[in-house]
């Protein structure tokens, strides 16, 4: 019922000072959301249509860092969504897009202050964003595989 007073228990943040721009976070994010879950070789060798990375890596050498959905306490995307597909889960605090109901109108992209929602045309038009690797049930792949600990999870409870 009450969807906005609950804070996501954990958030992923970046440290620009130690990010080396290797983009392994992107690679592992793609694999984590492919049908060969977490299998890099199968994901990249066998799939012609791979999922989009749900992390955005910004780079202007030597500076770089990765950004993904903040699962905001007051999510602009949820309030802007014209279908109701984008919702903040009151239990987990995660902002999750229901791909079934999303029509790819990109109003969430227009609204997101962090620019971390992508247009996914892989199958049907749908907004793509970080889901905290919810389905895998383990630590988000980007954080787990960052070789320099430039991504970290901050527990907010």
């Amino acid at each position: 019922m009450d969807k906005s007073n609950i804070t996501a228990p954990k958030k992923i943040y970046a440290k620009e000072d130690v990010c080396i721009g290797c983009r392994l976070c992107e690679i592992h994010c793609i694999a984590a959301h492919s049908k060969y879950r977490h299998d890099l070789i199968k994901t990249f060798k066998k799939l012609s249509k791979r999922p989009l990375p749900r992390i955005v890596v910004e780079e202007d050498v030597p500076l770089s860092f990765g950004l993904q959905c903040r699962h905001c306490d007051e999510p602009e995307c949820v309030k802007a969504c014209i279908t109701g597909a984008m919702q903040k889960d009151p239990k987990t605090g995660l902002v999750i897009n229901d791909a079934e109901r999303c029509i790819g109108c990109w109003t969430c992209i227009l609204a997101c202050p962090y620019g971390v929602i992508r247009r996914d045309y892989t199958n049907k038009k749908v907004a793509s964003k970080c889901d905290f690797c919810l389905e895998s049930g383990s630590e988000p792949a980007c954080v787990k595989n960052c070789p320099n600990e430039a991504l970290y999870i901050k527990s907010l409870v």
Binding site: Y13, D60, F65, L67, P113, Y114
Partner: peptide, 16 residues
Amino acid sequence: FIYLPKALRSQLILEG
């Protein structure tokens, strides 16, 4: 964010 001044960028990166 990379083209924003450092202070603003650091603030935004840690928000949400």
